[in-house]
Nucleic acid binder design. Sequence first.
DNA 1: GCATTGACGAAGG
DNA 2: CCCTTCGCCAATG
Length: 115
Amino acid sequence: MQYTPKTKDFFLNVFDVVRLIPKGRVTSYGAIANYLGTGGSSRMVGWAMNASHGVKPKVPAHRVVNRNGMLTGKAHFETPTQMQALLEKEKIKVKNDNVVDFKEIFWDPVIELGY
DNA sequence: GCATTGACGAAGG
DNA sequence: CCCTTCGCCAATG
């Protein structure tokens, strides 16, 4: 998985934002895409996460879920249970692949970091 | 170079 | 309320 010069910046931006997510908070792919101004390209955010493995400093990809608060990306971790384990370690409750009180701990970069 | 595939999301039936 | 379609765009076959 090697990225082209064009997508490189986008990828790095995504990593950057994800690393800013406070402990015990989560955000969505769409929120990140929106913050980066790439609006509907939420898929690219997910794609960026795909490339986030082995990146330094480490990217807390487990704090990024889909708009429903569902752990759709758990299959891409070392083990399918890794994502949930990391979340619960940060006091984030996960029930049936879903973040409990997702709406409460949701962290929107556009709101938290400003425009 | 066209077709398929996503860690997505909104809209329509 | 569940399922399908469509828009998004890079990567892959």
